[in-house]
Design a protein around this nucleic acid. Sequence first.
DNA 1: CCTGTTCCATAACGGTCGGTATATAATATG
DNA 2: CATATTATATACCGACCGTTATGGAACAGG
Lengths: 207, 207
Amino acid sequence: MEQEVIPAPAAAQKGRPREFCVDKALAEALHVFWSKGYDGASMTDLTEAMGITKPSLYAAFGNKEALFHKALDLYEQEKLEYTRAALEQPTARGVAEYYLRGGVDVHAAEGEPHGCMGLISSLACSPEAESIRADVIRRRASSQHALVERFERARAEGDIPAHIDPEGLTSLLYAILQGITVQADAGASREELERLVDTSLALWPSA
Amino acid sequence: MEQEVIPAPAAAQKGRPREFCVDKALAEALHVFWSKGYDGASMTDLTEAMGITKPSLYAAFGNKEALFHKALDLYEQEKLEYTRAALEQPTARGVAEYYLRGGVDVHAAEGEPHGCMGLISSLACSPEAESIRADVIRRRASSQHALVERFERARAEGDIPAHIDPEGLTSLLYAILQGITVQADAGASREELERLVDTSLALWPSA
DNA sequence: CCTGTTCCATAACGGTCGGTATATAATATG
DNA sequence: CATATTATATACCGACCGTTATGGAACAGG
């Protein structure tokens, strides 16, 4: 039996080519979800921002929920990069400062929605958006876990005092970060947030 | 001209008496708004929990928005009493501890919704709920202002170090509190939140 | 050209939203 | 009893929700 030839690998598009860029449309969808939250973003909001019709959206992304998960992937990848870079800072204080200043940069940036997309979409959500909420909480727990390990290492290295609980310190750092995004969403100025960060670092435990 | 007699002062009810207790109905409405947020609470959710019909609700409370403002009044009065009591603590550390432990008590209480009603209702809201959001932000700013003054007094009294900015410290304490309510909403246990508070207090500046 | 396939545009689906018109029931007053 | 007033119950309003059926347009391969 003869082996079939491998079909065109790059783009064996058989039918009518789509008239929009999937990546650009997803970036627009991200912007809408970030501004309005999952429930607050209507399909009309999304299609108008993405410049496509509803059938095109459903064909390309599945449905609203699948679109959100993809947008959240993009958000984590592009906007939350600082949370991974922070872990590589040499000292625990450096980690905290990277986290907090990175959080202010991302969640109070000019020309972008203020606040945290995940928090906005998960704090209050309709029953049918429960999977959205669960996804956000799961991702947050994963990220938080990495920070706990980083602070445990810091304590072992004598980088933070022995009487400080790494899990408590992690919860605290996340709480401050969440507060920053909440206050950014409420319209706090960059100066206010930077003073918040400065004060946080002034209280940070010295080894 | 003769003076008219004063009408029955207690309850000069002329028509059919209402069959429900306004205060109890409002308390049920508060519970629904606290659980689901302003946008997430539908009129059906509200009327079912309150045990009344929609026309009764509109006759007694105006509309959904007016009902929310009244529920928020009740919430502040009954649940946020700790924020006022905190200010009367003798030391800045006492104020902070009262704030944080009070926040955990209220926002992670058994048998009540977890999280902060104001935050849940204001973080992401539809365009027509913008007045809700503005109300929450205004009340928060007012409460925050009182805390700034308390910490300014504390610094003047040498209760907190001179190099600590009272406004920054206030923003920080609020951020931690907001983070507590966010994590409570996400399902954090009381033990986790208490460790967060313990760690916060461990870092609190000593005079 | 013809067929198959994929995409786009329009319009519509059932369902829910906040809010209300209508009619009836229950009280006070005369 | 008659009337005025207020509350209740039912049913409905237009608008919007997420989703999809339908029909035509744009491409590839034969």
